[in-house]
C-alpha cells in the first residue's frame, strides 16, 4: 500500500526543548489516520511541520511521494488543511473567503458543501457563531479538490448533528481514495472514524497501529461474579490490575494476554463473566500515564 505521508526520524527543537523527538510515521493512502496525544505532546507541531509552516530540525517528511519542504507549494494544491485554531478574517464574509481561496486554488466541492452544511455566505465572519466559523473552515479545507486532508480537531465547536455530517464526509472522502490525517481529543470520535492511529507523548510516537490491533491487543476489562467470595490475592498477576469489586465480585484490567486471568478465574464457580475490550480512552490513558 502506498504511503500518503511518510515521516522519517523527524526532530523539531525549540532551543533546548525537543517538541518532536525522532518521530517516524507512515500514513497509508485512502485511510483515515488518527493522531492522538495529551496537550503539549507535539501534535500541532507535527501538523505544522507537515504543512511546512515549521521546518524540521532533522529528518524528512514526504507527502504523496514529494518532499514536504521543497515541494510544499505544489503539494498544497493537493492538501486541504484545517488548523485547530483557524483564524478567519473577521471583516470578510464567508463568500469573500471562498472567492479568495477558490480564486487561487479552484473551487472544488465548495458549492456542494455550502448546501450540505447550510451555511449562510453573506454575514461577515465576526458575526458568525463559532459553529458556523468552523463550518466555513471545514469547507475551506475542501477548496481545490484535495487528495489529502490534514485536520487538527475538526469537530471542535460543531453540534452532534454536524459532527455526524462531517464523519460521513470524511468516510466518503476516504472511500473515494482520499487520505485523512486528523488529530483529536475526542477519543470516541477517533475510535469510530479512524482506520489507523498513532499516539504521541512528549514528542515521541509511543504507538502507531491499526485501530483494530490497538484495541484488541492491548487492554481487556474483566468483570466476574462467583458463587463464593473471590480472593483478590489470586489475581496478583503480571500485567493484571484489580480495579474494583469486593466479596463475590471482581473487576480487572488486563494488559496483554488474557489467558492467565481466565485460568485464575477457573478456580471459582462463576455465575457471570463479562470480558470487554477497553475503550480507546482506556488504551490511551495507559500510553499517556505510563
Amino acid at each position: 500500500m502506498l504511503a500518503a505521508i511518510q515521516v522519517k526520524r523527524v526532530t523539531k527543537s525549540f532551543g533546548a526543548k525537543r517538541a518532536l523527538d525522532n518521530v517516524t510515521l507512515t500514513v497509508p493512502e485512502g485511510h483515515i489516520f488518527g493522531f492522538l496525544g495529551p496537550n503539549g505532546a507535539g501534535k500541532t507541531t507535527m501538523i505544522r511541520c507537515l504543512m511546512d509552516y515549521m521546518r524540521v530540525s532533522h529528518g524528512a517528511i514526504s507527502i504523496l511521494g514529494r518532499d514536504a519542504r521543497t515541494e510544499s507549494a505544489a503539494l498544497k494544491r493537493e492538501i486541504g488543511y484545517l488548523s485547530s485554531d483557524m483564524q478567519l478574517h473577521p471583516n470578510w464574509s464567508a463568500r469573500t473567503h471562498l472567492n479568495f481561496m477558490g480564486g487561487i486554488e479552484g473551487r472544488g466541492r465548495t458549492a456542494e458543501l455550502v448546501r450540505k452544511f447550510n451555511l449562510d455566505l453573506k454575514p461577515k465572519v465576526r458575526d458568525l457563531s463559532s459553529g458556523n466559523k468552523q463550518k466555513l473552515a471545514i469547507i475551506l479545507a475542501f477548496v481545490g479538490n484535495p487528495k489529502l486532508l490534514i485536520m487538527d480537531e475538526p469537530t471542535r465547536g460543531l453540534d452532534p448533528l454536524l459532527q455526524n455530517q462531517l464523519y460521513d464526509l470524511l468516510r466518503d472522502f476516504a472511500a473515494q481514495g482520499g487520505t485523512v490525517f486528523l488529530s483529536s481529543h475526542n477519543l470516541a470520535e477517533v475510535q469510530q472514524l479512524c482506520d489507523n492511529v498513532a499516539v504521541i507523548r512528549e514528542g515521541k510516537v509511543v504507538a502507531a497501529e491499526a485501530m483494530t490491533d490497538i484495541l484488541q491487543l492491548r487492554v481487556h476489562l474483566v468483570n466476574a461474579v462467583a458463587a463464593k467470595v473471590i480472593d483478590q490475592a489470586d489475581f496478583k498477576l503480571k500485567d493484571v490490575e484489580v480495579i474494583g469489586g469486593s466479596g463475590k465480585n471482581i473487576s480487572l484490567k488486563v494488559r496483554g494476554k488474557i489467558d492467565p486471568v481466565i485460568k485464575a478465574l477457573a478456580k471459582y464457580n462463576l455465575t457471570d463473566l463479562e470480558v470487554t475490550h477497553a475503550a480507546l480512552e482506556d488504551v490511551f490513558m495507559e500510553y499517556y500515564q505510563n
Binding site: M51, D52, Y53, S72, A73, A74, L75, K76, R77, I79, Y81, S83, D85, M86, Q87, L88, H89, H97, M101, I104, E105, L140, G144
Partner: peptide
C-alpha cells in the same frame, strides 16, 4: 499574531511569492 497568515500559508504558493 491574528492567525490569518494560516490561510495564506495553506495556499499553493511559495513563501517568497
Amino acid at each position: 499574531q491574528a492567525g490569518t497568515m494560516g490561510l495564506l500559508l495553506a495556499l499553493p504558493l511559495k513563501r517568497w511569492q
